[in-house]
Design a protein around this nucleic acid. Structure first.
Lengths: 117, 117
DNA sequence: CGGTATCCTCGCTGATACTG
DNA sequence: CAGTATCAGCGAGGATACCG
């Protein structure tokens, strides 16, 4: 998804590219609530594999949406949280969330057309 | 993209699923400006294939984001425009667009991490 | 002009196994 | 606990050709 030729044509395009990963908005949502550890996130998104979770977190980290805090201790502890940029992204997302909630029923009905069997 | 298990976990998730197609936000953008014919859209998004353009338009149509008006004449003429729902989606998207524009430079720099060579 | 019909590729996603 | 490595599958997206 995202960029077509030279990145990017417009702002929405750029933003969607950042949050377009299959689990990213869910991660944003979880982290907005409170910082989480790797294992906590895995438990909250039960269907995600470790590899993909790690991958998406790193992409969000590269985009400075998520901060990764490593505690030098045994057993290891790593905590993920939203940066200021991440928080601002979440705020920019809120009208979209409201729109989605308002039309959720309709969108679930049209879901089959977007994801044919 | 989009729904994981049972659609949908939250509103943003649902919305992103609708606009997550590779070209959809660009189409929304173009149609918000003014209604367009098939060929006009193709010329504005030069890298899109006819098949995919048609596909994405039909998905947006199924979601009642886009209206498809067929004129019974020769040569054929079909005009695509935003519905009220589509317009409301575009409005809900505008903070995200502002966010994207504001951080575009940063996002282009981090682009390689999201789309490794 | 405005599409379908095929075929194909690429890379995202996932399952499993292993490590510091 | 928090990952990395490796391999495999699948499906959206794309190229090309053809049709009303």
């Amino acid at each position: 998804m995202g960029a077509r030729n030279g990145p990017y044509t417009c702002g929405v395009d750029a933003a969607v590219d950042v949050i377009g990963g299959k689990w990213k908005v869910l991660l944003l949502w979880a982290l907005a609530e409170q910082p989480r550890r790797f294992g906590e996130l895995r438990r909250e998104l039960p269907k995600i594999s470790e590899k993909v979770l790690s991958q998406q977190l790193r992409e969000l980290e590269a985009d400075a949406i998520v901060h990764r805090e490593v505690y030098a201790q045994i057993p290891p502890k790593v905590e993920y949280s939203l940066t200021d940029l991440g928080t601002s992204l979440n705020e920019a997302l809120s009208p979209l969330g409201a729109w989605g909630r308002a039309h959720m029923a309709h969108l679930e009905a049209t879901y089959p057309q977007r994801h044919p069997a």
